[in-house]
């Protein structure tokens, strides 16, 4: 396939097999990433690994459909909003623990968040919230790094033309 077609994603000679397989694979990769994030407390995995797997699904999308289409689907300002959201979720759960432990300064001691009546269930739910925050941030940052690496090349080629 010619290089320009692959970069712009508008050429007529795109590979049907690559597009179909990646269109089928991307939702399953993302579902597996969510499974890894949620199961991080009790087994191997966690927010970081799940976030990386989620970001690799966007890498697959960029490889199959080109950076222009992927950039329209997942723009840079959404990226910035997402990685701020993850950090705020992490820090917010920690500060909520400080507030709910009534001044005992139990930062990120999840048991004090009154989500349920049991201390251990509160701890599990708070751990999941923190893992989701880590996952969102890692996913957005790694996607942003990859998109920026690919965008720069695109812009340079556009400037030379």
């Amino acid at each position: 396939m010619p290089r320009e077609d692959r970069d712009t994603g508008k050429g007529k000679s795109r590979s049907v097999v690559v597009e179909t397989v990646s269109r089928l694979m991307v939702p399953f990769i993302q579902l597996f990433a969510l499974y890894v994030i949620i199961h991080g407390a009790g087994g191997p995995g966690g927010g970081f690994q799940g976030g990386v797997i989620f970001a690799s699904s966007f890498v697959l999308y960029v490889i199959a459909f080109g950076i222009v289409k992927a950039g329209n689907r997942f723009p840079e300002h959404a990226n910035i909003a997402l990685f701020s959201t993850g950090v705020y979720l992490y820090a917010g759960v920690g500060l909520l623990c400080v507030i709910c432990s009534l001044g005992a300064a139990q930062y990120l001691n999840y048991g004090f968040i009154p989500l349920t009546h049991h201390f251990e269930e509160n701890r599990a739910l708070g751990m999941d919230l923190v893992e989701i925050g880590i996952g969102i941030t890692v996913m957005a940052v790694i996607t942003s790094i990859f998109f920026n690496l690919v965008w720069k090349r695109e812009e340079i080629e556009k400037g030379e033309d």
């Binding site: 890894v36 990386v52 797997i53 890498v59 990859f146 690496l149």
Partner: peptide, 14 residues
């Protein structure tokens, strides 16, 4: 898990 996701996946793409 981290090595397979980051080392073999993301770093290679970068």
């Amino acid at each position: 898990f981290t090595e397979a996701a980051v080392g073999a996946g993301a770093t290679t793409a970068f």
